[in-house]
């Protein structure tokens, strides 16, 4: 069936089987292989992309349901020489070993920081009614629990995210 996807600001007309997930459309039809297929069941988060500002598992989304939605993949966040703040922080903090989960971690963290800026509480937030959230290690771990890292680079991932989050707090 025919569908139109908007990825990183570019429009793509596709003719695909309705079974095609957004992840398979990105990887197999659009040559955007930054988003990774890990479990293909929404458990590992390697496929995380940002849809209209919200992080989602692209493996559990049909491509044909996503027309009219602005999709951002890791390729749309930054490029070599022009890295996004989180991409840069992951490099400096050594927030990966094999790197397979990294695009998903970075897409997830990018949208997660916006959720925190909007004041969304998490399961470990004491005061549900607060307008703002401060991201300590516990908050970051809880909010990033949908992204697994089999190399267990978690301490450095958390450090990278916390640094960017603190910089944003200072900027405000």
């Amino acid at each position: 069936m025919k569908t139109t996807l908007t990825i990183n600001g570019n429009t793509h007309a596709l003719d695909i089987d309705p079974r095609t997930t957004l992840l398979d459309a990105l990887r197999n039809h659009l040559d955007l292989t930054g988003s990774k297929k890990g479990c293909d069941h929404g458990q590992c988060g390697a496929c995380t992309v940002i849809a209209d500002g919200r992080r989602i598992n692209s493996c559990l989304t049909l491509a044909c349901m996503m027309d009219g939605v602005e999709i951002t993949t890791v390729e749309g966040l930054g490029k070599p020489g022009d890295l996004s703040p989180l991409q840069d922080a992951f490099v400096r903090h050594d927030g990966f070993q094999c790197g397979y989960c990294t695009p998903g971690q970075i897409c997830s963290a990018t949208a997660m920081l916006e959720e925190a800026r909007a004041g969304w509480p998490s399961a470990v937030t004491d005061n549900l009614e607060g307008e703002t959230v401060s991201l300590g290690n516990g908050e970051i771990s809880e909010r990033m629990s949908g992204n697994l890292c089999r190399c267990a680079a978690y301490p450095n991932i958390v450090d990278a995210i916390r640094e960017v989050s603190e910089r944003k707090e200072v900027a405000e």
């Binding site: 929404g42 988060g45 995380t48 849809a51 919200r54 992080r55 989602i56 598992n57 559990l60 989304t61 997830s108 949208a111 997660m112 959720e115 509480p121 998490s122 399961a123 937030t125 549900l128 009614e129 909010r143 990033m144 629990s145 949908g146 992204n147």
Partner: peptide, 21 residues
């Protein structure tokens, strides 16, 4: 504010990505 048991329950379920969908 009014139904914190519901917010808490929702936030304890699934992951950030899944709750968005």
């Amino acid at each position: 504010q009014t139904y914190p048991v519901l917010s808490r329950a929702l936030l304890s379920g699934a992951s950030g990505q899944l709750r968005n969908m």
